[in-house]
Structure formats: C-alpha cells, structure tokens
Amino acid sequence: MIGVYDFNGHYEWTFAWLEAEGGPPLLREYWDVAIHQDSQSHAAELIRQKGFAGMQEYWGHTLNQEGGTHATTATESVFRIDMHDCPSKGFLMRNQLQQHRDYCDHCIGWIGPLLRRAGFVIDHQHNHCGQCWWEMRRATDAAPPSRPGEVTGARDVRLRPDWKPKGAALDTYSRANDPASKHSQQE
C-alpha cells in the first residue's frame, strides 16, 4: 500500500514520472484534472460558492491538518497566505527527496485553474526553501501585490531574514492562474 505518512514524497515522485511520460502538458493536466477537479473538489466548491470566506474555510482546515507554520489574512479585497514552514516542502528537504525540478509549482498548478474558474487571480512568490506568499484578488481588481508588511504586518514572510537565501531562485507569479507563467530570479 502507498500511504499518507509520506504522501509528499510519492506525490513529488509522480510529477517527474508524469512529465517523463507526457511532458509538461500532461503534468499540468494532472494538477488541474486530478488535483483541482477531483481530489480537491471540496475546495473548488467552497471557493466558488463563498469566495474569500471559502478560501478562509478551506485553507484554515487543510493547513492546520498538514501542520507547518503559516498565517492567513482576509480583507474585503484580498486573501493572503504567508507560509513560513511549508510542511510538504519541509518533508522533502528533510528526507532529501527531489525528482522533479520544482515541487513548489504544484500549488499554483491546481490552485491557479481553480481560482480562474472562481473569478480570481494570484500574486505569488516561493523561494524553494519552504517559504512562500500568496495574494488572491478578484480578476476585476487591478490592484498590485501588497508591499511587505502592508497586509499581514510582522507575519509577512517577505520580512524574514532568510526570505532570499543566497544562491536560491525566487519564483514569481503576477496576476497568474497558469503554472507556466512564472518568472525566476536568482538571488
């Protein structure tokens, strides 16, 4: 049997397997069809029905179940997540597991299409070290991403001294819904 205690390990391994089978298009289809529309159909339903309140309800439950250290902030115009210690990326790093070039892309791989259907866009950065931030806004809202500390105060992950580790690449998504639309910057 394959189980959930090491789920992130075989999940990440599966990304590389699928990409070897069918290239990036098959992997992106997997994140959209299998994860967004099937596995996480409960998240899709909540967010389509309730918008920001559904995001709070979904991520409040799932991030607590998975562990890790994070903060969520909801206003009338933005839902923000600051991930300080990603439980799944942390599992991979502690166990030295890496088959796929960027595990972190899987989040926008399924959340991006979900939010597109629900009418939202995403600003997001991840540093490949278990820290990232997300801001979800209505697609009709042209506001830029917040400045560090503006929405979440001291809990903003961008204020961490290790947010931009030397040698690490900082990946950025701007008003995105597509995992292929990132910009990568080496620090």
Binding site: A34, Q65, E66
Partner: peptide, 13 residues
C-alpha cells in the same frame, strides 16, 4: 501520522 485527506489525491491520481 499523515493527513487523511491525502487519500483523496492518491485515489484521484
């Protein structure tokens, strides 16, 4: 123990 909701993803995979 692992998070049980990950069984959803295994089944979907």
């Amino acid at each position: 123990q692992g998070a049980a909701d990950f069984y959803f993803a295994i089944n979907a995979t």
